[in-house]
């Protein structure tokens, strides 16, 4: 069983939901990124999504774009992100790690070389934003063969046929993008998300995480009445951006509040 699947099983048994924070590697620098990752775990994160900087992040809003630009200015590339994971793994054998990024840095390294290096470094899953299922059949097989999970996105515009296709290739969890748009955009429409999750649930047993637009504990909690995980990205980067020197402490503080809200026992009030 993959580390990601183990996380979801453990949480299910405890009747809890997964908290999945995202942070761009190398923003403000790799040393701080390591501190941030550890602070996230201390605050109750279950799976960490680590963003791989890319020069042309077409699916990201301004906040994550800026984080990527800062990381690129530091010269941080895919190989550095893998070393970051390796360093993190030396002290944390349990927390699942997912790399999230775009296809080109992976292709530049070479798909097979990258998959092997990621597995060796202790990565558990991959999200390649611009590899839709049609273009990743071979890649998905190679990723699976290396014991990693390939995580796909679904969107409000995804058709039933599309959901079935993704369900056939995905493992670990499915990342449901809560709104039409880019990361960090607007506010999310809870009813709409819940409706779509029901459809996805009908078609697959893979855990579903919801991201894009979750900015506080209350929203994370509501989302998790149905979803298996709350994914938070831009809101965390804002903490880093606001005070890079104390980034780890600020991110930890913010996430513990979210965790507390998610873990609050259910009340009868709707």
């Amino acid at each position: 069983m993959s580390r990601i699947t183990a996380v979801f099983e453990r949480l299910r048994a405890a009747e809890r939901k997964a908290l999945i924070p995202y942070v761009t590697a190398g923003d403000p620098d790799l040393g701080t990124s390591l501190d941030i990752l550890r602070a996230m775990v201390a605050a109750g994160a279950d799976i960490l999504e680590i963003g791989v900087p890319f020069s042309d992040p077409m699916a990201d809003g301004p906040v994550i774009q800026r984080a990527g630009e800062r990381a690129l200015k530091n010269g941080v590339g895919l190989a550095d992100v893998l070393s970051l994971v390796e360093r993190f793994r030396q002290t944390d054998p349990d927390t699942a790690i997912v790399l999230m990024g775009y296809a080109n840095p992976i292709e530049a390294m070479g798909r097979d070389r990258f998959i092997a290096a990621a597995a060796r470094a202790g990565v558990d899953g991959l999200i390649v934003v611009d590899y839709p299922p049609e273009e990743s059949v071979d890649f998905a097989a190679a990723v699976r063969a290396a014991g990693l999970d390939l995580i796909f996105l679904l969107a409000p515009t995804s058709t039933r046929a599309r959901i079935e296709q993704v369900a056939g290739l995905a493992s670990g969890y499915i990342y449901y993008v809560s709104l039409a748009g880019v990361t960090g955009a607007g506010h999310l429409d809870l009813d709409d998300v819940l409706h779509h999750l029901e459809v996805i649930r009908e078609l697959t047993d893979i855990p579903v995480g919801v991201g894009f637009g979750i900015r506080d504990g209350a929203t994370a909690r509501s989302i998790c009445t149905i979803a298996d995980a709350a994914i938070i990205g831009s809101r965390i980067i804002q903490e880093v951006e606001a005070d890079p020197v104390h980034a780890a402490a600020r991110v930890g503080h913010f996430l513990s509040e979210v965790r507390a809200a998610m873990d609050q026992p259910a009340t009868n009030a709707a």
Partner: peptide, 12 residues
């Protein structure tokens, strides 16, 4: 060629 985009654009 091909279609290398995020899921948000696939339907469009």
């Amino acid at each position: 060629g091909g279609i290398f985009v995020a899921e948000t654009l696939v339907h469009a």
